[in-house]
Nucleic acid binder design. Structure first.
Length: 576
DNA sequence: AAGTTGGTAAACAATT
DNA sequence: CAATTGTTTACCAACT
């Protein structure tokens, strides 16, 4: 049965996604007004935000994405329902059971939608309270687009810089992880006309629309304390927490202890983004599968990039003002934080799906040099590259590496020499570099931090539940994220997704085996799947990347000239 | 607290 | 000769 095959793939894919803590990307592609997960990730990495700001940002993003989805979803839901039923009736082959099943699934979807909507409204309320979304009575209601336009990355960055840097005297309030008081300065500084976001909503009547001013700071502070977005009715409202806190100070203490910006909360962010992505993916697939059910399947690669509607604008990341520019957010000083290892972002799919982003935005790719070099080599047809070809890959793929060439080229050479996983092979016309995959995996221990119960949940529940649902439940339970996808998400129309996953799966299966005796608690079944032919020694777990089966397309950045020498490009480091 | 890992800088040799 | 390629050491910061 095709359906069974599909679910098998789907199941594995979902598990894989969560095991890898894969940062979703297609959301950003399809709803370009929203911050990309990468930008979110960068924000996380830079740790310029307090957990509260992060939470707000996350909620904001979710609200935006959900709102954008909701409008179209209703239409498509109806469309699809009718079309499917029609098709099935005409085909006459489907037993009534299946028709009923389809109808049930439609219902489930709609329930899910309702939950999303409720969540969204909750988010919006929270945002209003926070002052991040100001609803101005005097202004005419603007279409959703204008809200989205207020969310361009640069402005957000500016916003956060403003928030975190505007009051060094009271810096501990906003910028220190160890304290959680989102001071009124934070609130008032974001609630400026410049940065306030207009929402296509009726003006609220509860007085929350007024902008806070410095004069009202103390009063506002009181107000804020009473209206802390995460505190209400003596209960912590962090998603899924609901811890009882007698008073506000104890709540703050609780917040500080339990919801600090650590691996756990960032994992929550990722999972939530993932959830949204999965939902959107489903929405997209439902509609596309409906439209092309009898036709050929859409190409797998095109799936994540297919716009929801033909009118969806191109990603603003490639457009003027929205491009993340050097002056806006380029990293100051050396970045010593490690990304890929910590967050287990699969480099191949990240790069593949965010090619345009990395090509145009001067954002440092969240991977180590070693990972990038390996990626470059493995992407090549012969799985080998000369040093210069590696250089070229860097500059071709990443705008970030079109500057400070001396620095990163030195780093590349340094890495090539230093790491055993890079093997120099003498060639007829010089030398090329190859990757010793075993060595590479050896030196990259991986953990899924503190989630044995997640593994357990997945293992025990995926067998009999809707796979995605089970994985979501498990993941969100682990990460204390409320379940707003309780409705069954199964839908036969998602078949086309299977082929998209097959590629990734092929890579995984082909890739790995383990010594088979791994029973460490923090290990996921998917990780175990990864080691297939690595038997020699007790290796550390994989990186979960698999052999790069998600092939990147070869379109070059329009503004990148491969012949140009970026080495001496004047860098506007300019004045501080 | 110590060890590990990764990024940067730099000295230097070998090769082209 | 210069430029490129490759090796190595040192230091720092983040992380475990």
């Amino acid at each position: 049965m095709q359906t069974i095959n599909f679910w098998t793939f789907f199941e594995i894919f979902v598990l894989l996604s969560f095991c890898m803590h894969h940062v979703p990307v297609s959301v950003a592609m399809m709803t370009p007004q929203v911050i990309t997960p990468q930008q979110m990730q960068q924000i996380l990495q830079q740790q310029v935000l307090t957990p509260q700001q992060l939470q707000v940002l996350l909620q904001q993003q979710q609200a935006l994405m959900l709102q954008q989805q909701l409008q179209e979803f209703y239409k498509k839901q109806q469309e699809q329902l009718q079309l499917q039923l029609l098709q099935q009736q005409h085909a006459g082959k489907q037993p009534k059971e299946q028709q009923q099943q389809v109808a049930t699934q439609q219902l489930a979807f709609q329930q899910q939608l309702l939950q999303m909507q409720q969540l969204q409204q909750q988010h919006l309320l929270t945002l209003q309270r926070q002052g991040l979304l100001s609803i101005q009575p005097g202004q005419p209601a603007l279409p959703l687009q204008s809200l989205a336009q207020g969310m361009i990355p640069t402005e957000l960055q500016q916003l956060w810089k403003e928030v975190t840097g505007s009051h060094t005297a009271d810096d501990a309030g906003c910028n220190n992880h160890s304290t959680l008081d989102l001071s009124t300065t934070c609130v008032s500084s974001v609630a400026t006309p410049k940065t306030s976001l207009l929402l296509n909503h009726q003006p609220s009547t509860n007085g929350q629309t007024s902008l806070l001013t410095p004069k009202r700071e103390s009063a506002a502070h009181e107000d804020y304390m009473q209206n802390h977005p995460l505190y209400g009715h003596g209960v912590c409202k962090w998603p899924g927490c609901e811890a009882v806190c007698e008073d506000f100070p104890s709540f703050l203490k609780h917040l500080n202890n339990e919801h600090a910006l650590d691996d756990r909360s960032t994992a929550q962010c990722r999972v939530q983004m993932q959830v949204v992505q999965q939902l959107e993916l489903q929405l997209n697939l439902v509609s596309s599968a409906t439209l092309s059910k009898t036709a050929s399947e859409p190409s797998p690669q095109s799936l994540p990039h297919t716009p929801t509607t033909p009118t969806t604008p191109l990603t603003p990341l490639t457009q003027g003002p929205s491009v993340i520019t050097t002056t806006s957010i380029h990293n100051v000083g050396p970045i010593r934080r490690r990304y890929s290892d910590k967050y287990n972002v699969p480099i191949s799919s990240d790069i593949a799906q965010n090619q345009e982003f990395y090509k145009n935005a001067e954002v440092r790719p969240p991977f180590t040099y070693a990972s990038l070099i390996r990626q470059a080599i493995l992407e090549s047809p012969e799985k080998q590259l000369t040093l210069n070809e590696i250089y070229n890959w860097f500059t071709r793929m990443f705008a970030y590496f079109r500057r400070n060439a001396a620095t990163w080229k030195n780093a590349v050479r340094h890495n090539l020499s230093l790491h055993k996983c890079f093997v120099r092979v003498e060639n007829v016309k010089g030398a090329v570099w190859t990757v010793d995959e075993i060595e590479f995996q050896k030196r990259r221990p991986q953990k899924i931090s503190g989630s044995p119960s997640l593994i357990k949940n997945i293992q025990t529940s995926h067998a009999y539940c809707s796979p995605l649902n089970a994985a979501l439940q498990a993941s969100m339970a682990e990460n204390s994220i409320p379940l707003y996808t309780t409705a069954s998400m199964g839908n036969p129309a998602l078949t086309s997704l299977a082929s998209a996953m097959r590629e990734e799966l092929n890579g995984v299966i082909e890739h790995g085996n383990s010594n088979g005796s791994d029973s460490s608690p923090g290990r996921s079944p998917m990780q175990a799947m990864h080691h297939v032919h690595v038997k020699e020694e007790p290796l550390d777990p994989d990186e979960n990347e698999g052999p790069l089966s998600l092939v990147t397309t070869a379109n070059h950045s329009p503004d990148f000239d491969p012949d140009r020498d970026y080495e001496d490009e004047p860098v506007n480091e300019d004045m501080e």
